[in-house]
């Protein structure tokens, strides 16, 4: 059992939807980023997605691309990202952290060493965008063996024939990508997403969380209402990019989390 499993059990018991927030680790710098991450649980965030900076984020729109560049320019690395998680864990041992990014920094670090280090830093799950089920032996299977959740993305192009393959080695929750596209580009529409969530839930008992294209409290409420919860990334990262303070960012996050929790 991971902190992710515990969190969903807790939300389920309370009849609440999950609110998941994404921020890039080290954006705009280590200290500010740590301050922002520390403020997230208080703002109502149930699960923290921590972005691992990478030079070539192929699935991300310009907002998250720039966040990665800011973090890298400020000296962020995989090791520093794990340090940030370690610092956070000193004051919070229950909020799940999912590390989200691309494979090369992890591969470069060495998969076995990475799993030991990430576990020690209090990471509960991984979302690695460029590791589809076809590449499960790379990281997914070793990560599950190490007691970490491997959270898979399902997309509108994942048809019913393929869905079982995508669900097979997924754990923690399923991240449904609401649009065909990159982060922060198009808007998710609850009427279109609802049947897709039902389609996925027919093939898994895992919670289904919807992300991409959610940027207001209203949208957060509408999307969380037709799934087990929602993820907001670019809208929050945009505030950080605009130079907002940790408390201003937290206030914005709270409005989104309240939206999801109203659902």
């Amino acid at each position: 059992m991971t902190r992710i499993n515990d969190k969903f059990a807790e939300l389920n018991a309370a009849g609440k939807k999950a609110f998941v927030s994404y921020v890039m680790a080290g954006d705009p710098d280590f200290d500010t980023s740590l301050e922002i991450v520390k403020a997230l649980p208080g703002a109502g965030v149930d699960i923290i997605e921590l972005g691992l900076p990478f030079t070539d984020p192929m699935a991300d729109g310009v907002i998250i691309q720039l966040a990665g560049q800011r973090a890298l320019a400020a000296g962020m690395t995989l090791n520093r990202t794990l340090e940030l998680a370690t610092e956070f864990r000193k004051g919070d041992n229950t909020t799940p952290i999912v590390l989200m990014g691309y494979y090369n920094p992890i591969y470069s670090h060495g998969v076995d060493r990475f799993l030991v280090d990430a576990k020690a830093a209090g990471i509960d799950g991984l979302i690695v965008v460029d590791l589809p089920p076809e590449e499960d032996s790379e990281l997914c299977i070793p990560a599950q063996a190490a007691g970490m959740n491997f959270i898979r993305l399902a997309t509108p192009t994942t048809d019913n024939k393929r869905l079982p393959k995508v669900m097979q080695n997924t754990s923690g929750f399923v991240y449904y990508v609401s649009i065909t596209g990159i982060t922060g580009a198009a808007e998710a529409e609850a009427v279109n997403v609802a049947p897709e969530v039902a389609r996925i839930k027919a093939q898994t008992d895992l919670p289904v969380i919807v992300g991409f294209g959610i940027n207001t409290p209203e949208k957060s409420e509408a999307i969380a209402g037709i799934a087990d919860g929602c993820v907001v990334g670019s809208a929050i990262v945009k505030e950080i990019g605009a130079g907002k303070s940790a408390s201003e960012v937290a206030a914005f996050v709270k409005s989104l989390a309240d939206g999801a929790h109203r659902a």
Binding site: M58, A59, Y103, V129, D130, L131, P132, E134, E135, R152, L153, A154, T155, P156, T157, T158, D159, R162, V166, V177, T180
Partner: peptide, 18 residues
């Protein structure tokens, strides 16, 4: 699996996989 020894493969996001 699209591999030449350990090289190659299909390291793309799920949207592109199909």
């Amino acid at each position: 699996n699209g591999r030449f020894g350990k090289f190659g493969g299909r390291f793309v996001s799920e949207t592109l996989m199909p």
